[in-house]
Design a protein around this nucleic acid. Structure first.
Length: 425
RNA sequence: GGAAAGGUGGCAGAGCGGUUGAAUGCGGCAGUCUCGAAAACUGUUGUACCGGUUACGGUAUCGGGGGUUCGAAUCCCCCCCUUUCCGCCA
């Protein structure tokens, strides 16, 4: 949620920022409602002050036997007027809140302006020693490998649940589990994150807090009977750990890493990158979440990206970093880097991680603050998160990059102690 | 699924129609004392919003929403949540 005071004081900036994010210009409407709101508040609070003042004298009047009928009649009128104005105020405030809840965050000034993914900027690229984009043998794609080696069964996954629900079998299942454990351990031991294992069904307030609701409702699974949502990312439960809390400045930054399965309806995206693991309704992801002081959050973002990159370097998987342009940024993000790993079969880069700074956008929605020692006042924290990483896309890159001309898979060195085997096939 | 109890400030815990933002205790902060610390004593200590350059003034807030009333933490209605017991169960 954007800060209403900021909009009031910087309408031009906000207007430009919304346009850069391909969002509707709500500035005039917001300012108008804000104006009305404040004018009613002034009136109604005046009346309430009067009522309180008179009320406090009534016990004394009764004690001294004064007649209260005129006062009561007068206060009755005041009460009615208050009720009327309060009603108007409620209507205006809910309209204002509705607009603000549907309004995206603004991009940071360091984000390149652009309307679509075309304008994203490649920041850097990392390739393993001896890596080549062209191979001297026929590369099988991950679906073919999965079938040939009996490590993934998409048909049976479809039988069980529907398309987009992958079934890992045998060494494929072990490899998936090894990846999750490796990544979590790595972040805990080398990057100093605290481990969390959160609930994967969350309530509406949590989904509102991180910004998935109300706008992205169509992309979320929901369990209507119980008012719960399967999480689309661990970002939701982990960020909401501190909803409605005031954190101590000395505890910041707080860094959590956790694994959850992720559930996404992917409404309207059928036919696009649908093959195998490329776009699925359920996948596994290790997520990193940070709560930071505002002045440090952009530095923390760079560190977050490095933390995700370290995993890929350890796995020896080729990747590149993209800085997303304003038009490609997600609803809640102020700045975001995508990490893409190379798929030799698809001959393209696949998004395996997204590392974002949300500044105070989520904190304001979820009411997550910290008390600054110097001022003693609560302030909103900045929240950040990044995949570290999603296994589905990563699995594609690992299988395809580690395949041998005989169609076997060499297990990446760092995973071997987790899998207990070195080769698949 | 059945039964009961309960949701009050950072925490514990009073209040059950009228100067109650809310007793008391703990905690936090500041001061006195001390070479320093502890103890003791004294003071202070929520948040949000509105107005004001500041000082400050005002409003709201006792799980959420609605109602009764001149006036609600206190009375009435609806909802949510938590705890305990019984049943079921990984």
């Amino acid at each position: 949620m954007l800060d209403i005071k900021f909009i009031r004081e910087n309408p031009g900036l906000v207007r430009l920022g919304l346009r850069n994010k391909n969002a509707a210009d709500v500035v005039d409407k917001v300012l108008e409602l804000d104006e009305q709101r404040r004018s009613i508040i002034a009136k109604v609070e005046d009346l309430k002050a009067k009522r309180n003042q008179v009320s406090s004298q009534i016990p004394m009047m009764k004690k001294t036997g004064q007649d209260t009928t005129t006062v009561f009649a007068e206060m009755k009128r005041v009460g009615d007027e208050i009720a009327m104005l309060d009603g108007q105020l409620r209507t205006i405030e809910s309209e204002l809140e509705d607009i603000l809840r549907y309004t995206p965050n603004l991009a940071h000034s360091s984000v390149p302006v652009g309307s679509s993914a075309e304008q994203n900027v490649e920041v850097r690229k990392w390739l393993p020693d001896g890596f080549a984009f062209e191979n001297d043998f026929k590369i099988l794609d991950h679906v073919e490998l999965g079938k040939k080696l009996s490590i993934m069964d998409f048909d049976r996954g479809t039988k069980i649940s529907g398309s987009g629900f992958p079934l890992y079998i045998g060494k494929g299942a072990t490899l998936e589990r090894a990846l999750i454990n490796f990544m979590l351990d790595y972040h805990l031991h080398n990057h100093n994150y605290s481990e969390v294992f959160p609930p994967v069904l969350v309530n509406k307030e949590s989904m509102m807090g991180t910004g998935q609701l109300p706008k992205m409702e169509e992309d979320m699974y929901s369990i209507e009977k119980d008012g719960l949502y399967p999480v689309p990312t661990a970002e939701v439960p982990i960020t909401n750990i501190h909803r409605d809390e005031i954190l101590a400045e000395k505890d910041l930054p707080i860094k959590y890493a956790g694994y959850t399965p992720c559930f996404r309806r992917e409404a309207g995206s059928y036919g696009k990158e649908y093959k195998g693991l490329l776009r699925v309704h359920q996948f596994n992801k290790v997520e990193m979440v940070k709560f930071s002081k505002p002045e440090n959050s952009y530095n923390e973002l760079e560190l977050l990206v490095n933390d995700a990159e370290d995993i890929l370097k350890a796995l020896n998987v080729p990747y590149r970093i993209l800085l997303l342009c304003t038009g490609d940024l997600s609803f809640s993000a102020a700045k975001c880097y995508d990490i893409e790993t190379w798929s030799p079969a698809e001959k393209k880069w696949l998004e395996a991680s997204s590392c974002s700074n949300f500044e105070a956008f989520q904190a304001r929605r979820a009411n997550i603050r910290f008390r600054r020692e110097e001022t003693k006042k609560p302030e909103f924290v900045h929240t950040l998160n990044g995949s570290g990483l999603a296994t589905s896309r990563l699995m594609v890159s690992i299988l395809e990059n580690y395949q041998t001309p005989e169609g076997k898979i060499i297990v990446p060195k760092v995973l071997q102690k987790y899998t207990g085997f070195e080769v698949i096939g």
